[in-house]
Design a binder for these strands. Sequence first.
DNA 1: AACATACTGCTAAAAATTTAGCAAGAGCGT
DNA 2: ACGCTCTTGCTAAATTTTTAGCAGTATGTT
Lengths: 128, 128
Amino acid sequence: MSRVKPELSRRERQIMDILYRSGAATASEVLARLPDPPSNSAVRTLLRILEEKGHLRHEQDGPRYVFHPIVPREAARRNAMRHLLTTFFDSSNEQAFAAMLDLGKEPLAEEELTRLQEMIDRARAEGR
Amino acid sequence: MSRVKPELSRRERQIMDILYRSGAATASEVLARLPDPPSNSAVRTLLRILEEKGHLRHEQDGPRYVFHPIVPREAARRNAMRHLLTTFFDSSNEQAFAAMLDLGKEPLAEEELTRLQEMIDRARAEGR
DNA sequence: AACATACTGCTAAAAATTTAGCAAGAGCGT
DNA sequence: ACGCTCTTGCTAAATTTTTAGCAGTATGTT
């Protein structure tokens, strides 16, 4: 079971990303958010292909299809995070965390810092 | 200046990832690490293309070329991190951090937790 | 009910990506 | 110096990706 998933093509990835950002979307919605918009027809074809390959499913909503990713966001997250960690951070949580802190232009809210701290405490307690 | 960079194709990305993991590599080294290895010739062509597009440069090392990414790792990191954050974590540092903690099979070392904590303290102090 | 609009399915074609072959040159060991 | 191996440059071809066109069907608006 669970055959190998050949990595997605450029457009396929763009579309999956959009879907993961919005949770679900129709063909036109996807089109609207595509960086380099092709025709509506082109987008639909890609959606159909992604569905055939088992990355999406669709539900009917009145006259149109609403597409959802099949792999749940949390699982996709984990994979993406792991990939990022190994590719750019030598699997170092610290480095990744540091990069995260550096990202935002706004300083982090005091509240947020507190919650992060709590997570660490919890990890300690649970022997994580 | 700085024209738009059309996103990389599948193979191009695989290759750039390898290069970012190893820092630099020859054609054969890249080939050896490719998941779905094509011919050596194919890899070289891709490397040449990536160089033309300005993603790589090469240095001669005796008889062979050693390829380096042009965009420094730290910059590429930031972009990748930002992309991950917006696509899968609604730009929430907390969620991303939580996912990070969940990733490792091994519990985090006490030492590492301490260092993470220090980063937070520092962020507080600096009004980050 | 008729019209305009917004979908879908399917198909063909264009464009891009990906692949590999072949000739030539450099380096290395015998 | 010879032959062997590994490299590159260039080119052509196969494959995949990406695009759009056209016909048909549903929706809903007047």
